[in-house]
Amino acid sequence: MRYLVFVKQVPDTTLIEVDEQGNLRREGVPSILDPYSEHALELALNLRSEGDSVTVVTMGPPQATAALRRCLEIGADEAYLLSDRAFAGADTYATSRTLTAFVEKFGECPDLILFGKQAADGDTAQVPAEVAEMLGADQFYYVTKAEPSGEGFEVVQDYGDEVRTCRAPKGSVLSVSEGDINRRLPSIERYLQASAMEIKVLDRIALGLGNFSVGNKGSRTKIVRSGSVRSERSCTVVDGSDPAKAATLIRGLF
């Protein structure tokens, strides 16, 4: 089986702070492999058996190789970086077209395509469904489990109010929910191996995409305004050392 995992590099949002004016302080905040991507990769690595392969792909600037390197360290077999100045400013639609082009040109009919359920920075959760639609593939969101079954896979999805088990044909797109995992750590041996592995870089031309299909120009949405808003709440701090008084205070709100 061939497993294709789309991953993303994001700033470590747990370290981002907000200053008095409401601006994001990104100084000294490292970029990491998106934790949600990691869950998707984890699922793929667990599915992989003898003779299978796991390929990781990301779209991003050259620095995003660091995220791919991390994937190789924890077990991916092969990594591609889709990188081109023209890809900048892509919304989910343009991103999905770029990723779809990769699957069509280089994917060699993957048996399963996996995404994290969202990205820690963008948080739209739209790309998996858009890619699935563009590929004409079936989509499975909120996947908590997947295992090979017959010709395809059996997947478990958790919609919050419903847990369903479906048969997923080969070639399906999965959006993977967080599982309860401890992040893998590579051995020193694997770390050294991975640092010697090649990360293949593909640009717009290699993917056969026109200028108008990618990045800002290929996007279907535009940001017209973006700004920090100071939260209107002015927090009053109250002494709660007496639980009974504090409880009365809370009860007074109802």
């Binding site: 370290l15 750590l185 051995s187 041996e189």
Partner: peptide, 17 residues
């Protein structure tokens, strides 16, 4: 021992672990 029986990590969050 061997380099296979080991863990390593360099991202801040891994080092914290």
């Amino acid at each position: 021992g061997s380099l296979r029986d080991s863990w390593c990590g360099y991202e801040l969050r891994d080092r914290q672990r």
